Amino acid sequence: MFETFDAAAYGEGISNIYDAPGYCLEDEEEAASFLYQTSVAVATDVANYESIYGCSVSALELGIGSGRVARPLAQKGVKVVGIDSSPAMLAKLPRDEMITGYLGDMTELQDLKEEFCIVFCVFNTLALVANQEDQIKVFQHAAKYLRPGGRFIIQLDVPDPAYMARSEWITVHNIKESGVEIGVCQHDPIGQVLDFQLMQLSDQGIKMSPARARYVWLSEIDLMARVAGMHLDSRAADWVGGQFGKSSQQHVSVYKKA
């Protein structure tokens, strides 16, 4: 396991490949549609919405990265504010009046001046907050910046107990004529922590991209929401409302602020 780890190192290490075809789930359009519908539903729950809040439908993304989801969401008319710890990822964010990105830590949000219809954290970004106490802080900050009745939306993998029984493993992610990507992982089952190295080997040399993640069991994540003053509103297997069940590999969970 890493002796120390800088959370910003993950975004810095993968910024060159993050938007490449096949790296992410390529579900940004489905995600944007779901987030748009949810944010509008929150807005319409509030009488005289714009006269009260003085702005259009808005969202806060925790871990905005290069704007993979923020871009299509903004195109639907939602103003997006985003936080990310990686300067390299933020440098790829579109310069747009509908999208504002800030360099920062999602566990230490102090200076935002507004409340939002939704706060969202997608593609396992919550797991990159690598200890339980800080994950609880993410929920607390989300609740703080949500309007009454607002929603906190999370997309996470479902931990596989059989997979997590191992202490270490190696995975080949991509093989090309020009190189190969190999992932190496060590597992701390007590802390629920995974330390990764993504190694990109090519004729240009070797690039190492470290990451640390903490997986979260469903009962645990629901309790974090309750601690922060929210409750589970819905849970699906994907952005298009697939039924969540025991064989689901990921979940899209929506938490409502009282």
Rank of each mutant, 00 (worst) to 15 (best):
F2P: 08
E3A: 04
G13V: 02
L25D: 14
D27P: 07
E28D: 10
E28G: 03
E29G: 02
S33V: 13
V40I: 15
I52G: 00
C55E: 15
V57F: 06
V57N: 11
S58T: 11
E61V: 10
E61Y: 05
G67A: 04
R71S: 10
P72H: 11
V78M: 08
K92F: 12
L93A: 04
P94R: 08
D96A: 07
M98G: 03
D105A: 00
M106I: 09
M106C: 03
Q110T: 15
Q110N: 12
V119P: 05
V119Q: 02
V122I: 13
L128D: 12
N131W: 08
K137T: 00
K137Y: 00
F139Q: 03
Q140W: 03
H141N: 09
R147N: 03
R151S: 05
I154A: 02
I154F: 00
L156W: 11
D157W: 14
P161G: 06
A165Y: 03
R166G: 06
W169C: 02
I182G: 06
Q186K: 15
D188M: 06
F196E: 04
L198E: 09
L198M: 13
Q200F: 08
I206P: 10
A213K: 08
R214P: 06
R214Q: 12
Y215S: 05
Y215E: 13
D222W: 00
L223K: 13
M224Q: 10
R226Q: 15
D233W: 02
D238I: 03
G241Q: 09
F244N: 05
G245S: 10
S247V: 06
S248G: 06
Q249R: 15
Q250L: 05
